[in-house]
Amino acid sequence: MNHKRSLWYYIKRDRFMYLLLLPGVVWYFIFHYVPMYGVIIAFKDYKPFFGIEGIFTSKWVGLQWFRKFFQSVYCARLLKNTFLLSFYSLAVNFPSAILLALFLNELKGKLFKKTVQTISYLPHFLSAVIVCGIVREMVSTDSGLFNALIKLFGGKPIPFLSRPEWFRTIYISSGLWQGIGWSSIIYLAAMSGLDQELYDAARIDGAGVLKRMRHITIPGIRQVISIQLILAVGGILSVGAEKILLLYNPQIYSTADVISTYVYREGLGNQNYSFGTAVGLFGSLVHMVLILGTNFIAKKMGEEGIW
């Protein structure tokens, strides 16, 4: 007999689960859904002085702020820089975290494994100010490690942070150092759920480390990789301003200036929140298209999508 139970039955049965879920839902509702009405300031001449009331009472200006962004001579450069910085970060950081997780998973010595994990996680907890301070010191022409090495081998010091061609390398490599350990956690968690008997059987069949990775581990975590990739691609235009603001200067705007730093200068710096919101809204639309597109492609390729 197919007995259909009521919704309340399931809620009552899993009440503790729902109770655990509640803080997250409330947090999302308060901080992500409630403020959404504020997006209308992208179409208004909003002044922060007038607070929440000003959101409704400000003058409508149509697409003025979008025009300002798209008419800027820097619009194309900003999009290009943002995309390239994100793309290179994704291309380097995404597989690196998987590789680290794969190798950590193969380590036998627990103490060594834990030590490596802890050391690789630690930079994640440093603030951008500290990370950028370290980077600035490392690449300084006066006392920086890299220039000391260059001088040691008879070279001429390179003012790395004054050269546009070096910015992406510095940004991405420091990002890799800071985030690789933390990003690998989710893959390690996925790997811990794989059936150990598969590994035992593979060993008996003579499979080495690389073959076990290729034929057991990677296929086993393929779904997690797919979802992570979809989410990462979706955020490809959301390069954070904080770290770049701490590292860049007008000499390297040609490669370092991205949408978020431009919005910071032109929007927040001049207290033009409407402009900042308009550019943010544009970014969100791009994110949505990218997520939908990647999800569609992933599903077409037989992978799991995020919905």
Partner: peptide
């Protein structure tokens, strides 16, 4: 005029180009 991109862009362009002339 402040609502257009002209002012900010001119300032940014000048700052960047000055650095190039200087270097």
């Amino acid at each position: 005029l402040s609502a257009t991109s002209a002012v900010g862009d001119v300032k940014t362009y000048r700052t960047e180009e000055m650095a190039k002339f200087l270097k």
